[in-house]
Amino acid sequence: MKKPLRPTGLLLARALMILTLPLAMVACTPTVQMAAPKEPITVNLNVKIQHEIYVKVDKDVEDLFSEKGLF
């Protein structure tokens, strides 16, 4: 019993796919390039920090402090 012969076009298409698969995989790999900046990096630390603290005191406690003082 002989095996039936496959069409030549189908074999050629499979061979072409098998040969182009590694090329396609290599072409799609990402490349990362690192380069130093041309200008130096400067950090500006001239920062003004201003904050306010508000304290709310109950009216009774405020009267107590104004009466005799704390100490």
Rank of each mutant, 00 (worst) to 15 (best):
N46A: 14
E67R: 10
T8I: 14
R14Y: 03
H51Q: 14
V32C: 01
L70K: 14
V61H: 10
I41K: 10
Q50P: 04
A27E: 01
E39A: 13
L19Y: 04
V61G: 00
E62T: 05
V32A: 00
I18D: 12
P4V: 15
R14C: 05
K2T: 04
Y54P: 00
T20D: 04
I41T: 12
P7F: 04
V47D: 09
P40Q: 06
A27M: 05
T31D: 03
N44L: 05
L23G: 09
F65D: 00
L70Q: 14
A15D: 12
I49F: 08
F65V: 15
N44H: 11
K3V: 04
Y54Q: 12
K68Y: 05
C28S: 12
H51Y: 08
I18N: 14
L12E: 08
K56R: 14
L12F: 10
R14H: 11
T42R: 09
L70S: 12
E67M: 09
T42P: 00
K48A: 12
Y54M: 15
L12P: 00
N46P: 00
V32D: 02
T29Y: 10
P40C: 01
P40N: 06
F71T: 08
L70H: 11
E52R: 11
L11I: 04
V55T: 14
D60Q: 10
K56I: 00
M17N: 07
P40L: 01
N44W: 09
T20H: 01
P40D: 13
V43N: 08
N44E: 15
P4S: 05
L10M: 03
L21C: 09
L64Y: 15
I53N: 06
M34F: 03
P40S: 13
L19S: 11
A35Q: 14
L11F: 02
T29E: 07
V26C: 02
C28N: 07
L64D: 03
D60P: 01
R14A: 13
V43H: 09
E52M: 13
K48C: 07
M1C: 13
L70D: 09
A15K: 14
Y54R: 15
E52K: 13
A24Q: 05
L5D: 14
D60N: 10
Q50S: 13
V26D: 04
T20R: 02
E62A: 15
K68N: 11
V43D: 05
K2F: 08
M34L: 06
P37I: 01
V55Q: 08
K59L: 00
K38H: 03
Q33I: 11
K59Q: 12
M25K: 01
H51V: 07
K2A: 10
L45D: 15
K59V: 06
D60S: 12
F71H: 11
A35G: 00
L21F: 08
M25H: 03
I41E: 07
L10I: 05
T20G: 07
L5C: 11
K48Y: 08
K59F: 00
E67Y: 08
P30E: 07
C28I: 13
A27C: 04
P30M: 09
P30N: 11
G9W: 04
L19T: 15
S66C: 03
R6K: 08
P22W: 02
K56S: 07
L45F: 13
V55K: 11
T8D: 14
